[in-house]
Nucleic acid binder design. Structure first.
Lengths: 195, 195
DNA sequence: CGCCTTTATGTCAGCCGCTGCCATCACTAG
DNA sequence: CTAGTGATGGCAGCGGCTGACATAAAGGCG
Protein backbone atom coordinates (compact mmCIF):
# COMPACT_ATOMS: atom_id res chain seq x y z
CA UNK A 1 0.00 0.00 0.00
CA UNK A 2 1.33 3.36 -0.98
CA UNK A 3 1.55 5.80 1.82
CA UNK A 4 1.47 8.91 -0.31
CA UNK A 5 0.05 9.05 -3.77
CA UNK A 6 1.49 11.45 -6.33
CA UNK A 7 -0.10 14.70 -7.36
CA UNK A 8 -0.80 15.81 -3.83
CA UNK A 9 -0.82 19.49 -4.68
CA UNK A 10 -3.27 18.93 -7.53
CA UNK A 11 -5.63 16.90 -5.37
CA UNK A 12 -5.54 19.60 -2.74
CA UNK A 13 -6.31 22.20 -5.38
CA UNK A 14 -9.30 20.31 -6.66
CA UNK A 15 -10.67 19.67 -3.19
CA UNK A 16 -10.15 23.29 -2.23
CA UNK A 17 -11.94 24.65 -5.28
CA UNK A 18 -14.89 22.38 -4.68
CA UNK A 19 -15.17 23.30 -1.01
CA UNK A 20 -14.73 27.00 -1.73
CA UNK A 21 -17.40 26.85 -4.41
CA UNK A 22 -19.93 25.19 -2.14
CA UNK A 23 -19.25 26.45 1.39
CA UNK A 24 -17.40 29.62 0.54
CA UNK A 25 -13.76 30.53 0.99
CA UNK A 26 -13.80 31.85 4.52
CA UNK A 27 -16.08 29.10 5.73
CA UNK A 28 -13.53 26.52 4.64
CA UNK A 29 -10.49 25.93 6.82
CA UNK A 30 -7.16 24.71 5.55
CA UNK A 31 -7.53 21.70 7.82
CA UNK A 32 -10.81 20.76 6.14
CA UNK A 33 -9.26 20.90 2.69
CA UNK A 34 -6.43 18.68 3.83
CA UNK A 35 -8.81 16.29 5.51
CA UNK A 36 -10.86 16.05 2.32
CA UNK A 37 -7.90 14.37 0.64
CA UNK A 38 -6.74 12.45 3.68
CA UNK A 39 -3.95 14.77 4.76
CA UNK A 40 -3.29 17.13 7.64
CA UNK A 41 -3.27 20.90 7.80
CA UNK A 42 0.49 20.87 8.26
CA UNK A 43 0.93 19.12 4.95
CA UNK A 44 -1.37 21.58 3.22
CA UNK A 45 0.97 24.40 4.22
CA UNK A 46 3.96 22.47 2.98
CA UNK A 47 2.47 22.53 -0.51
CA UNK A 48 1.08 26.06 -0.45
CA UNK A 49 2.70 29.00 1.24
CA UNK A 50 -0.72 30.24 2.28
CA UNK A 51 -4.35 29.36 2.07
CA UNK A 52 -5.01 31.57 -0.96
CA UNK A 53 -2.18 30.11 -2.97
CA UNK A 54 -4.10 26.89 -3.43
CA UNK A 55 -6.15 28.81 -6.00
CA UNK A 56 -3.21 30.45 -7.74
CA UNK A 57 -0.66 27.69 -7.96
CA UNK A 58 0.51 27.18 -11.49
CA UNK A 59 0.57 30.79 -12.59
CA UNK A 60 4.29 30.53 -13.24
CA UNK A 61 3.28 28.72 -16.41
CA UNK A 62 1.23 31.69 -17.54
CA UNK A 63 4.15 33.99 -16.84
CA UNK A 64 6.34 31.72 -18.88
CA UNK A 65 3.87 31.88 -21.75
CA UNK A 66 4.12 35.65 -21.69
CA UNK A 67 7.90 35.49 -21.68
CA UNK A 68 7.89 33.04 -24.57
CA UNK A 69 5.72 35.47 -26.47
CA UNK A 70 8.15 38.26 -25.75
CA UNK A 71 11.02 36.13 -26.98
CA UNK A 72 9.10 35.27 -30.13
CA UNK A 73 8.72 38.89 -31.21
CA UNK A 74 10.92 40.26 -33.97
CA UNK A 75 14.02 42.03 -32.75
CA UNK A 76 12.92 45.37 -34.18
CA UNK A 77 9.40 45.22 -32.79
CA UNK A 78 8.15 48.21 -30.82
CA UNK A 79 7.27 47.68 -27.13
CA UNK A 80 3.56 47.25 -27.70
CA UNK A 81 4.18 44.95 -30.64
CA UNK A 82 6.20 42.74 -28.33
CA UNK A 83 3.35 42.87 -25.87
CA UNK A 84 0.94 41.87 -28.61
CA UNK A 85 3.11 38.86 -29.27
CA UNK A 86 3.14 38.02 -25.57
CA UNK A 87 -0.64 38.24 -25.47
CA UNK A 88 -0.99 35.82 -28.35
CA UNK A 89 1.26 33.37 -26.59
CA UNK A 90 -0.53 33.76 -23.28
CA UNK A 91 -3.93 33.32 -24.87
CA UNK A 92 -3.00 29.82 -25.95
CA UNK A 93 -2.83 28.91 -22.29
CA UNK A 94 -6.57 29.23 -22.03
CA UNK A 95 -8.16 27.00 -24.64
CA UNK A 96 -11.94 27.13 -24.62
CA UNK A 97 -12.22 23.77 -22.86
CA UNK A 98 -10.80 25.40 -19.82
CA UNK A 99 -13.58 27.94 -19.59
CA UNK A 100 -15.91 26.02 -17.24
CA UNK A 101 -13.16 25.44 -14.73
CA UNK A 102 -12.02 29.05 -14.98
CA UNK A 103 -15.55 30.22 -14.41
CA UNK A 104 -16.09 28.43 -11.15
CA UNK A 105 -12.65 29.47 -9.99
CA UNK A 106 -13.34 33.07 -10.87
CA UNK A 107 -16.70 33.04 -9.13
CA UNK A 108 -14.95 32.01 -5.94
CA UNK A 109 -12.44 34.82 -6.32
CA UNK A 110 -15.09 37.39 -7.12
CA UNK A 111 -16.86 36.63 -3.87
CA UNK A 112 -13.83 37.25 -1.68
CA UNK A 113 -11.80 40.46 -1.38
CA UNK A 114 -8.71 38.71 -0.05
CA UNK A 115 -8.64 36.52 -3.14
CA UNK A 116 -9.15 39.49 -5.43
CA UNK A 117 -6.22 41.09 -3.75
CA UNK A 118 -4.05 38.09 -4.52
CA UNK A 119 -5.29 38.04 -8.08
CA UNK A 120 -4.42 41.68 -8.66
CA UNK A 121 -1.05 41.09 -7.10
CA UNK A 122 -0.35 38.21 -9.43
CA UNK A 123 -1.27 40.31 -12.44
CA UNK A 124 1.00 43.11 -11.30
CA UNK A 125 3.81 40.69 -10.64
CA UNK A 126 3.29 39.34 -14.12
CA UNK A 127 3.56 42.84 -15.52
CA UNK A 128 6.75 43.46 -13.57
CA UNK A 129 8.30 40.28 -14.95
CA UNK A 130 7.34 41.14 -18.50
CA UNK A 131 8.70 44.65 -18.02
CA UNK A 132 12.00 43.09 -17.02
CA UNK A 133 12.03 41.06 -20.22
CA UNK A 134 11.30 44.18 -22.24
CA UNK A 135 14.14 46.05 -20.59
CA UNK A 136 16.38 43.15 -21.42
CA UNK A 137 15.53 43.84 -25.06
CA UNK A 138 16.86 47.35 -24.68
CA UNK A 139 13.61 49.16 -24.04
CA UNK A 140 13.93 51.93 -21.50
CA UNK A 141 12.39 51.54 -18.09
CA UNK A 142 9.36 53.77 -18.35
CA UNK A 143 8.36 52.46 -21.75
CA UNK A 144 8.91 48.89 -20.65
CA UNK A 145 6.81 49.31 -17.53
CA UNK A 146 4.05 51.10 -19.40
CA UNK A 147 3.92 48.52 -22.15
CA UNK A 148 4.00 45.57 -19.78
CA UNK A 149 1.41 47.01 -17.47
CA UNK A 150 -0.81 47.84 -20.43
CA UNK A 151 -0.44 44.29 -21.59
CA UNK A 152 -1.54 43.01 -18.20
CA UNK A 153 -4.53 45.34 -18.28
CA UNK A 154 -5.52 44.19 -21.73
CA UNK A 155 -5.10 40.59 -20.68
CA UNK A 156 -7.26 41.14 -17.61
CA UNK A 157 -10.08 42.74 -19.55
CA UNK A 158 -9.93 40.16 -22.31
CA UNK A 159 -9.91 37.34 -19.79
CA UNK A 160 -13.01 38.69 -18.07
CA UNK A 161 -14.79 38.85 -21.38
CA UNK A 162 -13.56 35.38 -22.30
CA UNK A 163 -15.30 34.03 -19.22
CA UNK A 164 -18.58 35.54 -20.34
CA UNK A 165 -18.53 35.33 -24.11
CA UNK A 166 -17.86 32.23 -26.13
CA UNK A 167 -14.99 33.68 -28.09
CA UNK A 168 -11.33 32.81 -28.13
CA UNK A 169 -9.08 34.65 -25.73
CA UNK A 170 -6.66 35.45 -28.53
CA UNK A 171 -9.34 37.26 -30.50
CA UNK A 172 -10.57 39.14 -27.47
CA UNK A 173 -7.09 40.21 -26.46
CA UNK A 174 -6.33 41.48 -29.94
CA UNK A 175 -9.59 43.37 -29.95
CA UNK A 176 -9.01 44.98 -26.57
CA UNK A 177 -5.47 45.94 -27.48
CA UNK A 178 -6.77 47.51 -30.64
CA UNK A 179 -9.26 49.49 -28.63
CA UNK A 180 -6.45 50.76 -26.41
CA UNK A 181 -4.62 51.99 -29.48
CA UNK A 182 -7.75 53.73 -30.66
CA UNK A 183 -8.20 55.44 -27.33
CA UNK A 184 -4.63 56.65 -27.38
CA UNK A 185 -4.90 57.84 -30.95
CA UNK A 186 -8.00 59.86 -30.19
CA UNK A 187 -6.48 61.33 -27.06
CA UNK A 188 -3.23 62.03 -28.84
CA UNK A 189 -4.98 64.29 -31.31
CA UNK A 190 -6.54 66.28 -28.48
CA UNK A 191 -3.75 66.29 -25.92
CA UNK A 192 -0.88 67.15 -28.19
CA UNK A 193 -2.24 68.83 -31.28
CA UNK A 194 1.11 70.39 -32.15
CA UNK A 195 2.71 67.19 -33.31
CA UNK B 1 -8.42 64.20 32.63
CA UNK B 2 -9.54 63.15 29.22
CA UNK B 3 -10.02 59.48 28.78
CA UNK B 4 -9.63 59.43 25.01
CA UNK B 5 -7.91 62.12 23.06
CA UNK B 6 -9.05 62.89 19.53
CA UNK B 7 -7.30 61.70 16.42
CA UNK B 8 -6.83 58.18 17.65
CA UNK B 9 -6.56 56.73 14.16
CA UNK B 10 -3.94 59.29 13.18
CA UNK B 11 -1.86 58.62 16.27
CA UNK B 12 -2.02 54.92 15.60
CA UNK B 13 -0.92 55.52 12.03
CA UNK B 14 2.09 57.57 13.09
CA UNK B 15 3.13 55.06 15.72
CA UNK B 16 2.70 52.19 13.28
CA UNK B 17 4.78 53.81 10.58
CA UNK B 18 7.56 54.54 13.03
CA UNK B 19 7.58 51.02 14.41
CA UNK B 20 7.39 49.46 10.95
CA UNK B 21 10.25 51.64 9.75
CA UNK B 22 12.50 50.68 12.64
CA UNK B 23 11.63 47.10 13.59
CA UNK B 24 10.00 45.99 10.37
CA UNK B 25 6.39 45.23 9.57
CA UNK B 26 6.22 41.59 10.58
CA UNK B 27 8.26 42.14 13.69
CA UNK B 28 5.68 44.61 14.94
CA UNK B 29 2.47 43.29 16.43
CA UNK B 30 -0.82 45.14 16.39
CA UNK B 31 -0.79 45.04 20.18
CA UNK B 32 2.55 46.84 20.24
CA UNK B 33 1.30 49.61 18.00
CA UNK B 34 -1.72 50.06 20.22
CA UNK B 35 0.38 50.01 23.33
CA UNK B 36 2.66 52.67 21.87
CA UNK B 37 -0.22 55.12 22.00
CA UNK B 38 -1.73 53.79 25.22
CA UNK B 39 -4.47 51.66 23.73
CA UNK B 40 -5.26 47.97 23.42
CA UNK B 41 -5.08 45.65 20.44
CA UNK B 42 -8.86 45.43 20.33
CA UNK B 43 -9.11 49.17 19.83
CA UNK B 44 -6.56 49.06 17.05
CA UNK B 45 -8.81 46.69 15.14
CA UNK B 46 -11.79 48.91 15.71
CA UNK B 47 -10.03 51.66 13.80
CA UNK B 48 -8.47 49.52 11.09
CA UNK B 49 -10.08 46.49 9.57
CA UNK B 50 -6.70 44.85 9.36
CA UNK B 51 -3.11 45.39 10.35
CA UNK B 52 -2.11 46.52 6.87
CA UNK B 53 -4.84 49.11 6.65
CA UNK B 54 -3.04 51.29 9.17
CA UNK B 55 -0.72 52.20 6.29
CA UNK B 56 -3.43 52.77 3.73
CA UNK B 57 -6.07 54.65 5.64
CA UNK B 58 -6.97 57.90 3.92
CA UNK B 59 -6.83 56.65 0.36
CA UNK B 60 -10.50 57.49 -0.09
CA UNK B 61 -9.31 61.08 -0.37
CA UNK B 62 -7.07 60.19 -3.27
CA UNK B 63 -9.92 58.39 -4.95
CA UNK B 64 -12.05 61.47 -4.45
CA UNK B 65 -9.36 63.61 -6.05
CA UNK B 66 -9.46 61.38 -9.11
CA UNK B 67 -13.24 61.61 -9.25
CA UNK B 68 -13.10 65.39 -8.93
CA UNK B 69 -10.70 65.46 -11.83
CA UNK B 70 -13.06 63.32 -13.87
CA UNK B 71 -15.91 65.68 -13.09
CA UNK B 72 -13.80 68.67 -14.03
CA UNK B 73 -13.21 67.42 -17.56
CA UNK B 74 -15.12 68.94 -20.44
CA UNK B 75 -18.25 67.04 -21.41
CA UNK B 76 -16.91 66.22 -24.86
CA UNK B 77 -13.52 65.06 -23.67
CA UNK B 78 -12.29 61.68 -24.87
CA UNK B 79 -11.71 58.95 -22.26
CA UNK B 80 -7.98 59.51 -21.95
CA UNK B 81 -8.47 63.28 -21.82
CA UNK B 82 -10.74 62.75 -18.86
CA UNK B 83 -8.08 60.57 -17.30
CA UNK B 84 -5.51 63.29 -17.90
CA UNK B 85 -7.75 65.65 -15.98
CA UNK B 86 -8.10 63.13 -13.19
CA UNK B 87 -4.33 62.76 -13.02
CA UNK B 88 -3.85 66.52 -12.68
CA UNK B 89 -6.34 66.59 -9.85
CA UNK B 90 -4.78 63.59 -8.10
CA UNK B 91 -1.30 65.03 -8.41
CA UNK B 92 -2.29 67.96 -6.25
CA UNK B 93 -2.77 65.51 -3.42
CA UNK B 94 0.96 64.97 -3.24
CA UNK B 95 2.64 68.33 -2.82
CA UNK B 96 6.41 68.10 -2.62
CA UNK B 97 6.42 68.63 1.16
CA UNK B 98 4.85 65.24 1.47
CA UNK B 99 7.70 63.49 -0.24
CA UNK B 100 9.75 62.60 2.86
CA UNK B 101 6.80 61.00 4.55
CA UNK B 102 5.82 59.15 1.39
CA UNK B 103 9.36 57.89 1.05
CA UNK B 104 9.55 56.26 4.45
CA UNK B 105 6.09 54.82 3.99
CA UNK B 106 7.02 53.41 0.62
CA UNK B 107 10.23 51.90 1.93
CA UNK B 108 8.18 49.97 4.47
CA UNK B 109 5.83 48.73 1.76
CA UNK B 110 8.67 47.80 -0.56
CA UNK B 111 10.14 45.54 2.08
CA UNK B 112 6.97 43.48 2.59
CA UNK B 113 5.08 41.46 -0.03
CA UNK B 114 1.82 41.51 1.90
CA UNK B 115 1.89 45.29 1.89
CA UNK B 116 2.70 45.42 -1.80
CA UNK B 117 -0.29 43.23 -2.37
CA UNK B 118 -2.51 45.65 -0.55
CA UNK B 119 -1.01 48.56 -2.46
CA UNK B 120 -1.68 46.95 -5.83
CA UNK B 121 -5.16 46.14 -4.70
CA UNK B 122 -5.83 49.74 -3.77
CA UNK B 123 -4.58 50.93 -7.15
CA UNK B 124 -6.81 48.47 -8.94
CA UNK B 125 -9.77 49.45 -6.81
CA UNK B 126 -9.05 53.05 -7.67
CA UNK B 127 -9.07 52.16 -11.35
CA UNK B 128 -12.37 50.35 -10.97
CA UNK B 129 -13.94 53.35 -9.30
CA UNK B 130 -12.67 55.72 -11.97
CA UNK B 131 -13.93 53.35 -14.64
CA UNK B 132 -17.37 53.58 -13.06
CA UNK B 133 -17.24 57.36 -13.26
CA UNK B 134 -16.23 57.16 -16.90
CA UNK B 135 -19.11 54.83 -17.70
CA UNK B 136 -21.41 57.29 -15.97
CA UNK B 137 -20.25 59.81 -18.56
CA UNK B 138 -21.46 57.51 -21.31
CA UNK B 139 -18.19 55.83 -22.16
CA UNK B 140 -18.59 52.16 -22.98
CA UNK B 141 -17.34 49.56 -20.56
CA UNK B 142 -14.21 48.34 -22.30
CA UNK B 143 -13.01 51.84 -23.13
CA UNK B 144 -13.79 53.04 -19.62
CA UNK B 145 -11.90 50.18 -18.01
CA UNK B 146 -8.94 50.55 -20.33
CA UNK B 147 -8.71 54.28 -19.81
CA UNK B 148 -9.08 54.06 -16.05
CA UNK B 149 -6.61 51.24 -15.70
CA UNK B 150 -4.13 53.08 -17.90
CA UNK B 151 -4.58 56.11 -15.70
CA UNK B 152 -3.78 54.06 -12.63
CA UNK B 153 -0.71 52.64 -14.32
CA UNK B 154 0.50 56.08 -15.32
CA UNK B 155 -0.14 57.32 -11.81
CA UNK B 156 1.79 54.43 -10.31
CA UNK B 157 4.82 54.96 -12.51
CA UNK B 158 4.77 58.72 -12.03
CA UNK B 159 4.44 58.29 -8.27
CA UNK B 160 7.45 55.99 -8.14
CA UNK B 161 9.51 58.53 -10.04
CA UNK B 162 8.18 61.33 -7.84
CA UNK B 163 9.63 59.54 -4.83
CA UNK B 164 13.05 59.46 -6.46
CA UNK B 165 13.29 62.66 -8.46
CA UNK B 166 12.63 66.13 -7.15
CA UNK B 167 9.99 67.00 -9.70
CA UNK B 168 6.30 67.66 -9.29
CA UNK B 169 3.96 64.73 -9.59
CA UNK B 170 1.78 66.64 -12.04
CA UNK B 171 4.69 67.08 -14.44
CA UNK B 172 5.75 63.49 -14.13
CA UNK B 173 2.24 62.17 -14.68
CA UNK B 174 1.81 64.31 -17.78
CA UNK B 175 5.14 63.09 -19.08
CA UNK B 176 4.38 59.42 -18.47
CA UNK B 177 0.95 59.73 -20.04
CA UNK B 178 2.54 61.35 -23.05
CA UNK B 179 4.94 58.47 -23.31
CA UNK B 180 2.05 56.03 -23.28
CA UNK B 181 0.49 57.89 -26.19
CA UNK B 182 3.76 57.72 -28.04
CA UNK B 183 4.04 54.00 -27.48
CA UNK B 184 0.52 53.49 -28.77
CA UNK B 185 1.11 55.68 -31.76
CA UNK B 186 4.22 53.76 -32.74
CA UNK B 187 2.51 50.43 -32.26
CA UNK B 188 -0.57 51.61 -34.10
CA UNK B 189 1.47 52.21 -37.22
CA UNK B 190 2.85 48.70 -37.08
CA UNK B 191 -0.12 46.73 -35.85
CA UNK B 192 -2.78 48.19 -38.08
CA UNK B 193 -1.15 49.69 -41.13
CA UNK B 194 -4.34 49.58 -43.16
CA UNK B 195 -6.08 52.41 -41.38
C1' DC C 1 -28.29 69.18 38.59
C1' DG C 2 -29.23 64.48 37.76
C1' DC C 3 -30.65 61.02 34.22
C1' DC C 4 -30.10 58.79 29.81
C1' DT C 5 -28.08 57.83 25.58
C1' DT C 6 -24.20 57.56 22.83
C1' DT C 7 -19.56 56.50 21.80
C1' DA C 8 -14.84 54.97 22.49
C1' DT C 9 -12.53 51.84 25.02
C1' DG C 10 -11.23 47.63 27.97
C1' DT C 11 -11.44 42.63 28.93
C1' DC C 12 -11.73 37.99 27.76
C1' DA C 13 -12.42 33.85 25.32
C1' DG C 14 -11.62 31.64 21.21
C1' DC C 15 -11.01 30.40 16.10
C1' DC C 16 -7.94 30.17 12.47
C1' DG C 17 -3.76 30.95 9.67
C1' DC C 18 0.73 29.73 9.86
C1' DT C 19 5.46 28.06 11.70
C1' DG C 20 9.17 25.46 14.08
C1' DC C 21 10.56 21.22 15.82
C1' DC C 22 10.87 16.48 16.08
C1' DA C 23 9.15 11.84 15.11
C1' DT C 24 7.66 8.43 11.74
C1' DC C 25 7.41 5.66 7.92
C1' DA C 26 7.85 4.30 3.07
C1' DC C 27 11.09 4.00 -0.52
C1' DT C 28 15.86 3.77 -2.52
C1' DA C 29 20.74 3.37 -3.10
C1' DG C 30 24.62 0.90 -1.83
C1' DC D 1 20.71 -5.28 5.51
C1' DT D 2 21.57 -0.56 6.40
C1' DA D 3 21.84 4.19 5.91
C1' DG D 4 19.84 7.95 3.80
C1' DT D 5 16.07 10.66 1.63
C1' DG D 6 11.62 12.70 1.29
C1' DA D 7 6.81 13.27 2.33
C1' DT D 8 4.01 13.25 6.12
C1' DG D 9 2.04 13.42 11.11
C1' DG D 10 1.77 15.45 15.65
C1' DC D 11 2.13 19.12 18.64
C1' DA D 12 2.98 23.40 20.76
C1' DG D 13 2.62 28.16 20.20
C1' DC D 14 2.33 32.98 18.24
C1' DG D 15 -0.21 36.52 16.10
C1' DG D 16 -4.22 38.32 13.48
C1' DC D 17 -8.82 39.01 14.12
C1' DT D 18 -13.78 38.65 16.08
C1' DG D 19 -17.85 38.44 19.14
C1' DA D 20 -19.88 39.44 23.45
C1' DC D 21 -20.16 41.98 27.44
C1' DA D 22 -18.69 45.53 30.70
C1' DT D 23 -17.27 50.27 31.68
C1' DA D 24 -16.57 54.97 31.60
C1' DA D 25 -16.45 59.54 29.49
C1' DA D 26 -19.15 63.02 26.77
C1' DG D 27 -23.31 65.20 25.48
C1' DG D 28 -28.30 66.17 25.54
C1' DC D 29 -32.39 67.14 28.07
C1' DG D 30 -35.82 67.86 31.48
Amino acid sequence: MVRWEPGTAERLQRAALELFATRGYEQTTAAEIAQAVGLTERTFFRHFSDKREVLFHGQELLVQAFLDGVAAARADASPLEVVASALRSAASFFPDERRPHSRTRQSVIDRNPALQEREHHKLTTLATTVAGALRARGIDEVAATLAAESGATVFGIAFTRWLREERSLADLAAEVLDELLTLAETAGQALRPTR
